[in-house]
Design a protein around this nucleic acid. Structure first.
Lengths: 185, 185
DNA sequence: TTACTCAACTTGACAGTGTAAAGGAAATCA
DNA sequence: TGATTTCCTTTACACTGTCAAGTTGAGTAA
């Protein structure tokens, strides 16, 4: 083990910081390395290249994402109304996207990959949504119902990424609850 | 007017071709210029820089997108079932995204911009969806209903961009009809 | 015709980018 | 001790966007 305890983790963290502060354009091997205080070739050594580092950053992003969703789920009592639980979790989904637009974009750009860590971390996130949907399925078919909810939430998040509060836009945060109600019934 | 009739249009077309053939990574001022047979600084002259050229490409993309949606709408007789009409248009939406994933991503990345051409072209696209939703609103509130449908369709398209046909994924093309049916009733 | 203007490019230079090869330094191992 | 491996640096290279300056050629006015 080297003097600095864990350079890969340090690099991922530097990448996340840059992503928040400067957006996707600033996410550069050399700038990440500079912020971590190492030479520009160090990241490539640990992650194989820019793609590998992006995958690692996306993986960490999905972990934080998962944490937010679980926290939202746990913020309600166990006997809470299933609709309120689903709404709360999905609003956390959308809020994460709005708070970390560059990271959110990166996550779902890197998502289709061979990287097993990234794929499995992303899949773990979906389980939360799946659990929230289950008690609401009722007499519907499970798969299309889940698909509809996930797609609607993800689309809502995507369309609100960079246009946070456009007055005339048909997509606005407050209307998500009504939209979800239309679907769940 | 120069010998070559319309270089800006030629550059946009070259960009679209590169986007289809090589994806977003190939979309470079210099490669676009090379494919159009001009010097590497010519694009910057006409579009002010890479951003301007990307905006122009995205605008053209939205025009093609609009054309696909209108064609889908017109493929049905005037007295067709409103649900079938909405479904047909939305499947065209999703199919466009699947056929041109890199362009689709670019379009919605450049979408939040000051470029009036791009913004207005993109907005024209939404009108098609709006029209298809109208006869299905019934006793619901219009805005959340439209939002729900658009978000679901867009999310579906996004989640199917790069994972075209994953066997186990909860998101699959055939299930969109069922998902839409859940929402429209 | 001649001189001027101006838009449409080209050329050249520059800082910044990812990647790869080679080297070094220090820890680990035999 | 000597050899090896891991971690990282240095160096080099091709490629990128942008900028400034130069070129070209067609129109315009005198």
């Amino acid at each position: 083990m080297n003097m600095r305890s864990d350079l890969p983790q340090l690099l991922v963290k530097a990448g996340l910081t840059i992503l928040e502060e400067e957006g996707a354009e600033g996410l550069t091997l050399r700038r990440i390395a500079a912020r971590a205080g190492v030479s520009h070739a160090a990241p490539a050594h640990h992650f194989g290249g820019l793609t590998g580092l992006k995958n690692a950053i996306a993986t960490q992003g999905f972990q934080a994402f998962y944490g937010d969703l679980v926290a939202a789920q746990d913020s309600l009592p166990g006997d809470a109304d299933p609709f309120q639980r689903l709404l709360t979790v999905n609003l956390a989904y959308i809020r994460f996207a709005r708070r970390h637009p560059a990271l959110f974009r990166l996550m779902f750009e890197q998502w289709p990959t061979q990287d097993d860590d990234l794929r499995m971390t992303a899949q773990a996130t979906y389980v939360v949504l799946h659990q929230c949907c289950t008690p609401l399925v009722q007499d519907r078919k499970r798969a299309p119902f889940e698909t509809a909810i996930w797609a609607m939430t993800h689309g809502f998040a995507m369309l609100n990424l960079d246009q946070p509060y456009p007055p005339g836009s048909p997509v606005q945060m407050p209307s998500y609850e009504e939209a979800l109600r239309l679907l769940v019934g």
